[in-house]
Amino acid sequence: MHELGIVFYIIRDVKQAAESNNVSKVSAVVMNIGEVSTVVPEYLTDCWRWAADKEPLLKGSELKIIPVPAVTHCQDCGKEYETVRYGKTCPYCSSGNTFLLQGNEIEIKEIEVPNN
């Protein structure tokens, strides 16, 4: 639901990066999107199509999404487990003393620009 707001952030950051690298055309933007980042990849790419095509720098560019699996670490038994399957409670020792190691990323990994 907040994907459009995030797309505007991506566009702003990519414009900045393009300017500091003297780039006038971007063909793709590659994103790391965590499994529990609250972003729905399909919504993000739909919003991207709508918003990016309004920018000369980004017109026709592709938003590529690399999913990042969510992994939680248990501070009591030291084990790691799949966040989406077990949530906040450790499946090995039932402790709630756990934290997310990875999986909440909404990160611009890189941009691809035509080489000419």
Binding site: I6, Y9, I10, R12, D13, V14, A17, N21, V23, S27, A28, E105, I106, E107, I108, K109, E110, I111, E112, V113, P114, N115, N116
Partner: peptide, 17 residues
């Protein structure tokens, strides 16, 4: 020859906000 150049960014979209 590779037609695409890659520029690494590695930045959270929330960093600016």
């Amino acid at each position: 020859m590779e037609q695409i150049k890659i520029i690494e960014i590695k930045k959270s979209v929330f960093a600016e906000n």
